[in-house]
Amino acid sequence: MTPQLAAGVGLWRRTTDGIEVLLVERTKHRDLSLPKGKLDPGEALPACAVRELEEETGYRVTLQAPLGTSEYRLPTGQDKVVYYWQAELRDRDPAHAFAPNDEIMALHWLPLAEAVSRCTYEHDAVLVRRLAERIEAGEADTFAIIALRHAKAADPYMWDRDDASRTLTSRGERQARQVAPSIAAFGVQSVLTSTAVRCRQTVAPLAAVAGLEPRAVRSLAQDTYMGRGDRLLRRVTKALRHRRTTVLCSHLPVIPVIVDAVATATATPDTPSLHRGAMLHTADFTVLHVGGADGRVLAVETHGAPH
Rank of each mutant, 00 (worst) to 15 (best):
T245A: 13
S219L: 12
V217F: 09
R244N: 11
V236H: 04
R235C: 01
R241M: 11
G227R: 08
R234S: 13
D223M: 07
S250A: 13
P214W: 10
L220Q: 07
R235M: 15
H242F: 09
H251F: 10
K238T: 13
R218K: 14
R215I: 02
R241L: 13
L212P: 01
R228P: 00
R228W: 00
Y225T: 04
M226G: 00
R241Y: 09
A239I: 04
R218T: 07
P214C: 08
T246C: 09
R234K: 14
L220V: 04
R218N: 06
T246D: 04
T224I: 04
E213K: 09
T246E: 02
T246S: 13
L248T: 03
R228C: 00
L240T: 06
R215W: 09
M226A: 14
A221T: 12
P214A: 10
H242T: 10
L212E: 01
G229S: 11
L248K: 03
V247R: 00
T224S: 15
G227A: 05
L212T: 00
H242R: 14
D230F: 05
D230N: 07
V217P: 14
L232I: 12
T245C: 08
V217M: 09
V247L: 06
P214S: 13
A239H: 00
G227F: 07
M226Y: 04
S219G: 03
R243S: 14
D230V: 08
P214Y: 11
G211Y: 15
R218V: 02
G211W: 11
K238P: 00
K238Q: 15
T245E: 00
G227H: 12
V236S: 03
D230R: 10
R218D: 13
C249K: 00
A216K: 10
R215V: 13
L220T: 04
H251Y: 08
K238F: 07
R235D: 15
V236K: 02
L232S: 10
E213N: 11
R243A: 14
A221W: 01
H251C: 09
V236R: 02
G229A: 07
A221D: 12
P214H: 10
G211C: 13
H242K: 15
G227W: 08
D223V: 11
S219W: 12
D230P: 01
R215K: 11
D223Y: 03
G229P: 09
L233G: 01
P214V: 10
T237M: 09
L232K: 06
T224D: 05
R218L: 14
R244A: 06
G229N: 11
A216I: 04
V236T: 05
L240Y: 09
S219R: 08
D223N: 12
E213V: 09
R243T: 06
R235I: 03
G227T: 06
L240Q: 05
R215D: 07
V236L: 07
E213P: 01
R218G: 08
V236M: 03
G229M: 14
E213Y: 01
R218P: 00
Y225S: 05
